[in-house]
Design a protein around this nucleic acid. Structure first.
Lengths: 201, 201
DNA sequence: GTCTATAGGTTGATAGAC
DNA sequence: GTCTATCAACCTATAGAC
């Protein structure tokens, strides 16, 4: 059951890789079972449908990342600075270059349908939790401004992950992708300054 | 040839609508020809393939928007402020709610493949042009930091357009989408403050 | 649990009459 | 330029033997 290379795990590994590389629509179950070296029918046995497989693949990867985000937020204590909050929000996502998970996350962020279906509750939970923390750090911001700026930050983060390959190709000469710590520091600096700006009325 | 409702135009109108609503992969040529009330074979007569149709649809809409962005940048004069630059960058994109073009743009921004294939040169041109303007407004920023912050801003903008419907559903109570001018002002304020932050080293 | 075989449906693209 | 008819290539999902 908990074998490292059982059929179910092999399918999830292959799905994670291929969904990330080609997207959900463009990846067929045949692609996945070929890559995983298992039989086609195994997908419908272990998962009920392609949609369920997509959901399971996302959930397996997204859980740990979001746990880490919340852990970092908690670790910052009861009165975190806006820099600490932003770092907890974007750091774990931008750090995940140890796995083929990053491209998959990018696909999720880039697919309104998938996001709607699978990610809605995760996003809602995270957004409210972080918006609350920002309310403590920057009480002078209205709830609306707070949420908008959090969404702007989420967008900058998502764009960096999603469009990484394209950006690398176009601006690889000037943009450094290898130093993740520096990249995170850049985004934290940028977003924190944005959060500290006087409110628009 | 320049009739308002010729077959070619009807196909492009339907494609713009449906690609925006459902995405490129999920929209079949049959969906489009049904919506346009033209024959299926007309697509392959007027355009050669589905990919060419996608490209033509994007180009018809993206041209005017990018023209407006550059026009606003020029209108700001030889020494624009960072606020003027950001507004020229994000304003025309966030303003386009007069047409079904907005969801289509969102789909393009959300599809690495399509972006890579069709949008690369457009993005490159725009990014370099705006990065140059930022160099004038904020000469103390290094070229790398300048380009990163422009990409962060592009991400915040893209996210706002792309995830609009989801955000509206989740946070519609607190986020106001109707007042576009206010939304643009919020993003300009946020991003301009980010650009003005001291550089990371 | 794993396989083969196949049902049942869709798709993009084209040939050829008009 | 517009149509009908159709092809060949995919797809997801399942039934049923082992």
């Amino acid at each position: 059951m908990n074998e490292r290379h059982d059929t179910k795990t092999k399918i999830l590994d292959a799905a994670e890789k291929l969904f990330g590389e080609k997207g959900f629509d463009a990846t067929s179950l045949r692609d996945i079972t070929t890559e995983a070296d298992v039989n086609l029918a195994a997908v419908n046995y272990h998962f009920q449908s392609k949609d369920s497989l997509i959901e399971a693949t996302i959930m397996r990867g997204a859980g740990p990342v979001n746990d880490k985000r919340l852990a970092m937020l908690d670790a910052a204590g009861p009165k975190p600075t806006i820099e600490q909050i932003v770092e907890a929000f974007v750091g774990p996502v931008l750090e995940q270059d140890f796995m083929p998970m990053a491209p998959l996350m990018a696909r999720v962020l880039a697919s309104p349908e998938t996001m709607q279906r699978v990610f809605k509750q995760l996003i809602e939970t995270m957004s409210r939790r972080f918006a609350d923390a920002i309310g403590v750090a920057l009480p002078e911001l209205s709830p609306a401004e707070r949420m908008w700026r959090l969404q702007f930050t989420a967008g900058a983060m998502a764009h960096t992950v999603t469009r990484g390959p394209v950006m690398r190709e176009l601006f690889g000469g000037v943009l450094d992708f290898k130093d993740r710590k520096l990249l995170i520091a850049r985004l934290v600096k940028f977003a924190a300054a944005g959060f500290r700006a006087p409110e628009v009325h």
